[in-house]
């Protein structure tokens, strides 16, 4: 079933891949235009009408999504060459960027493809484990009240807390590659976030140790794409500078104090 002939169509060129490690290929689909479409609603139309422009019967294009309001990060993909969330990618805006009316969808290139536009973002969650991105309050004893938080600190921490682990910063980073071990802006910023927390800072030295090995903070090349593509406007480059300073101080302390006593 194809779109009715008398409506204006939007053409989607989609990079597809049938499974991990399989070869990728392109397919084009037409979606009838309606006001206020987003990329997800177009993908839903294609799932319902998986017929290519050439009239060939295909399979529904697979993608990952959850919240549909740009707070979960799951539907991140490369849209017209730029990484962003497909739920907040509005067709009326996209069509202004591309007067020809073609929208290109690709999976993120820095994460292994599961299928079509769906990628495996585990590397980001493993990075959070590496830097111990949590507040260690587990235990059976009463820890009492937490430390007081200043308004200034709260302000900074709120901006960092908005991270939804979507992967935009890593996709746009020229230093973060599919085959290397760079930890990237997302985890660096979370290390700063938890090092600023009154209780979370007890793990600060361990976070910095993890951050100073291969793939750590020093592998940043200061291209600063991360901060520009971040949909949550997190001050990622300031986080990188802050962790850079903490690492410098930490290294000097380690040099003069020696390694910590076990």
């Amino acid at each position: 079933m194809t779109a009715p002939a008398n409506t204006k169509n939007i053409r989607f060129k989609i990079k597809r891949q049938d499974g991990p490690g399989k070869a990728s290929y392109w397919q084009t689909f037409d979606v009838p235009y309606k006001p206020n479409l987003n990329v997800i609603s177009c993908l839903q139309y294609i799932a319902e009408h998986p017929v290519t422009v050439a009239g060939e019967k295909s399979t529904p294009v697979v993608w990952d999504c959850n919240c549909l309001e740009e707070v979960c990060g799951a539907c991140t993909m490369v849209i017209n060459g730029k990484v962003r969330q497909s739920c907040s990618a509005l067709l009326d805006e996209l069509l202004k960027e591309t007067p020809g009316g073609m929208v290109t969808l690709e999976p993120m290139t820095k994460f292994p493809v599961v299928r079509d536009l769906w990628v495996d973002r585990s590397r980001m969650f493993n990075a959070l484990k590496t830097i111990q991105a949590w507040v260690p309050i587990d235990g059976t004893h009463d820890l009492g009240e937490g430390p007081k938080e200043s308004a200034e600190n709260q302000d900074v921490r709120y901006s960092l807390s908005r991270c939804m682990t979507c992967g935009c910063c890593l996709e746009a980073c020229p230093q973060f590659l599919l085959g290397n071990q760079f930890i990237g802006a997302q985890a660096i910023s979370q290390a700063r976030y938890f090092n600023l927390h009154g209780t979370g800072k007890v793990l600060a030295d361990q976070r910095l140790d993890a951050m100073m090995g291969p793939g750590g903070i020093t592998d940043c090349g200061n291209a600063q794409n991360c901060v520009k593509v971040c949909p949550k406007e997190i001050p990622l480059t300031e986080s990188i500078a802050a962790i850079g300073r903490q690492a410098t101080v930490h290294a000097v302390k380690r040099f003069f104090n020696g390694p910590p006593r076990k």
Binding site: G81, K82, A172, P174, Q175, L177, N180, G221, N222, A223, Q224, N225, K228, V229
Partner: peptide, 24 residues
């Protein structure tokens, strides 16, 4: 060695800072 381990993308993300990175 560090340059060989990078993947400049200034064409795709043509921000001034990104050109600065590639030019470096």
């Amino acid at each position: 060695a560090y340059t060989l381990g990078s993947n400049p993308n200034s064409i795709q993300y043509p921000y001034m800072d990104n050109w600065r990175y590639t030019l470096q």
